[in-house]
């Protein structure tokens, strides 16, 4: 066992983990953060995407010990109390989901995309979330949701500036 100190969604944790424990299993099974799901378990589908020190990663392809000293943000940590994150709100309003299984990863990947490119074209959105698969093939509304969030987040940023 190896001790890790990690901040997850704003709270600090100190835990013993086996080196082989994957980050997604640590989040779900030791911390109960079941909002982050395991999809394909082969680094393909992106359902388990979280932010590690502010960058999107597939948490099934990172070891929990590698998060030692780092800040992890999951889908459970992006809302402000009862106020949804603009990306969550946009997925809700544009119906950017069908079965909903890919949604946590889609939202985390999309937030990362807008951080690097606040006003992406439709093509850039599709490229930006290429690591996230919607098995229902509901991409049209997912892309619309990201476009709506991009508009809202950039106008909010503009208002603050």
């Amino acid at each position: 066992m190896t001790q890790i100190n990690v901040r997850v969604d704003g709270a600090s944790y100190s835990d013993d983990v086996e080196p082989r424990t994957l980050l997604v299993h640590y989040l779900r099974e030791q911390l109960g953060k079941v909002g982050t799901v395991v999809g394909c378990d082969t680094s393909n589908c992106g359902a388990c995407t979280v932010h590690l020190d502010g960058e999107s990663v597939k948490s099934c392809t990172v070891l929990a010990v590698q998060a030692d000293g780092s800040e992890v943000t999951t889908i459970e940590g992006i809302a402000d109390g009862k106020t949804l994150h603009p990306m969550q709100k946009a997925f809700h309003e544009q119906h950017g989901l069908q079965c909903g299984y890919c949604t946590p990863g889609m939202i985390m990947a999309s937030i990362d995309l807008l951080k690097n490119n606040p006003n992406p074209s439709e093509h850039e959105i599709r490229e930006g979330i290429e690591g996230n698969l919607c098995r229902c093939t509901g991409y049209v509304n997912i892309v619309r949701a990201v476009q709506q969030a991009a508009g809202e987040m950039s106008s909010t940023a503009g208002a603050q500036a």
Binding site: G46, L52, S56, V57, A109
Partner: peptide, 9 residues
């Protein structure tokens, strides 16, 4: 190469 999340690591 792969996708943005993989390229971060």
């Amino acid at each position: 190469v792969a996708d943005p999340a993989v390229r971060h690591r």
